[in-house]
Design a protein around this nucleic acid. Structure first.
Lengths: 215, 215
DNA sequence: GATGATATCCATCAGCTGATGGAATCTATG
DNA sequence: CATAGATTCCATCAGCTGATGGATATCATC
């Protein structure tokens, strides 16, 4: 039998799917404690008891939202890897940044929820698995930053974290940074890509050149 | 007459100061909505009415905490600028990363509160000034990334944001990232500095070399 | 159209949270 | 010590929040 999350993902138009979609967005904007079940129910246009009927209590729905965005992100990373596979490093980096920033700007609640889980605590302490470690190693391998498929070295993992977090920051912080910079939506997104590339591509090209020189 | 915040900053041992210090920490861990006035009062060992007596309502205390960490950060940035002034770019960058990471790891609530304000919404919408734009331009000038004292170009501002956010991320996300990487406290902090330097210094050295070549 | 299962809403509750009034305590000053 | 002001705590409240029971509505199947 399919879990509630699988049902919701297989049919986004169902009530389960509509609630989950709204939950992702509202939890992403206000965090777990800043979100009330009534806010989500109102966003869907339903009563709170309908929400509880489909998803149990608030913590269960939050967990489902986190697992849902995690799975979306995993699928997108796989897709990006397929697209960039076999190309030279600087091109891979360039394309990966373009594809991931575009995707996350279209689904900012993914970045929002991830950052909330990284940087904030929930009361009472919830901790279900986030699958971050595997993601990070997969990205590292896809970027050709390490050979080992299963487990990247610590230094490489931290480089990958730096890249991913930089993207999440600009996506999730758009409401704060964009007015500060006086940019329109499209100009902001263009600048984000440029900035990330200008910083990251030289850094990693240099790293690889240094590796090659050492070898 | 001194404002409550000025009084609290001038005498950290006073009740106002003790409450403010606890508020910074708890707000930083759980965010505005995840924090209850009772949590802060309990951390200080006082009754909630004493808290309200000194700081008014919850929103006022939160605002004071944000302004307090903002001022701390401003003072630290000034200090760092004095220390690194006049040195070559790569050395400035190296020292600035060391000094700022050390400082923020000792005061993680600063990074915590800043990230909460960047990435989360508060209900009802609060928006008092954060002074971020001036900070960013000051850092850019201090790093010699721009000439104009008052207002750095957009591209430079975004580079500075990328650097500062990367530091905040690793400081504030320590509880999440460190177990994931299997590092002890000191090793983690060492690795954070190495990672930041390995990515940022080549990038900005390259940028400056390109500027010089173009000039 | 009858019937059982599923889905939705209304009414309501207990507990938590922010906030306050007022009594009790402390402190400085004469 | 007396007194006034400042500080702290206890008791309490109204409103919000998460959650549920039960009535109603919808739907598939016969």
């Amino acid at each position: 039998m399919a879990t509630p999350l699988e049902k919701a993902r297989s049919d986004p138009e169902s009530m389960k799917g509509r609630i989950l979609k709204a939950a992702r967005r509202v939890f992403g904007e206000y965090g777990f404690h800043g979100t009330t079940t009534r806010m989500i129910a109102e966003a869907v246009g339903i009563d709170i008891s309908t929400l509880h009927y489909h998803w149990g209590d608030k913590g269960d729905l939050y967990e489902a939202a986190v697992l849902d965005i995690t799975e979306d992100l995993r699928l997108k990373l796989e897709e990006v890897e397929r697209v960039i596979h076999g190309r030279p490093l600087s091109v891979r980096m360039d394309m990966a940044i373009d594809l991931m920033t575009d995707y996350l700007f279209e689904h900012p609640e993914i970045s929002n929820l991830i950052l909330f889980r990284y940087f904030g605590k929930t009361r009472p302490q919830t901790h279900f698995d986030f699958h971050v470690p595997e993601f990070i190693s997969d990205i590292a391998r896809s970027m050709d930053l390490c050979k080992d498929q299963k487990n990247a070295p610590v230094g490489v993992k931290m480089q990958v974290l730096t890249i991913m977090n930089a993207i999440h920051n600009f996506v999730s912080g758009e409401n704060f940074f964009r007015p500060m910079l006086g940019l329109r939506r499209d100009a902001y997104r263009k600048r984000v890509k440029e900035t990330l590339k200008s910083i990251l591509i030289p850094a990693f090209n240099g790293a690889v050149r240094r590796d090659e020189a050492a070898a």
